[in-house]
């Protein structure tokens, strides 16, 4: 299972027949396993890593620290669910350190992200404070470097 997940984590577009050959399993077995992993929400989705800068499309992303107070009984989970529901929130995690939550928020431009923080996130019940850091340039995302030709080692055509 881990081998299959690692393959898919690096390339969600493998064809079933290739996965089957790589793992030395039948295509049916691989299809069934992927379906089971999807049903159990272990495979929670498939994404494309996009270098938006290069696509010349304006997009604004920010990292936001959120301070809040835990609630009796539910701890941080209830407020996390509330924040996660906003479609602007790309990712959300509970962290150790100076804030409680770390968010990545995506918007079409800076103003959209600012409006989200000012009008939606900050007023959310339980949120005590926010600190917003706009992303200026992405160099690497999900393990993929966006800079090209950074490593150009070349092997000979034939070697012993």
């Amino acid at each position: 299972m881990k081998e299959l997940l690692t393959l898919l984590e690096n390339n969600a577009r493998y064809e079933i027949k290739d996965l089957a050959a790589l793992l030395n399993e039948s295509e049916e077995a691989v299809t069934d396993e992927i379906r089971a992993l999807e049903e159990r929400n272990i495979i929670a989705g498939y994404h494309t890593i996009i270098n938006w800068d290069k696509a010349d499309t304006e997009i604004s992303k920010a990292i936001i620290f959120v301070n809040c107070v835990p609630e009796r009984e539910s701890g941080y989970d209830k407020i996390a669910r509330k924040i996660a529901r906003f479609p602007e929130v790309d990712s959300l995690c509970l962290i150790s350190g100076k804030a409680e939550f770390l968010l990545q928020v995506n918007g079409r431009n800076m103003r959209e992200v600012s409006n989200f923080v000012a009008h939606k996130l900050a007023p959310t019940e339980g949120v005590n404070g926010t600190e917003t850091m706009f992303i200026l340039k992405e160099y690497k995302s999900n393990g993929v470097c966006f800079e090209e030709n950074t490593e150009d080692g070349e092997r000979l055509i034939v070697t012993p």
Binding site: E151, G153, R155, L156, I157, V158, T159, P160
Partner: peptide, 10 residues
Amino acid sequence: SLGVGEPDFI
């Protein structure tokens, strides 16, 4: 070529 006798990892 599939003739190289060294790994393809950097």
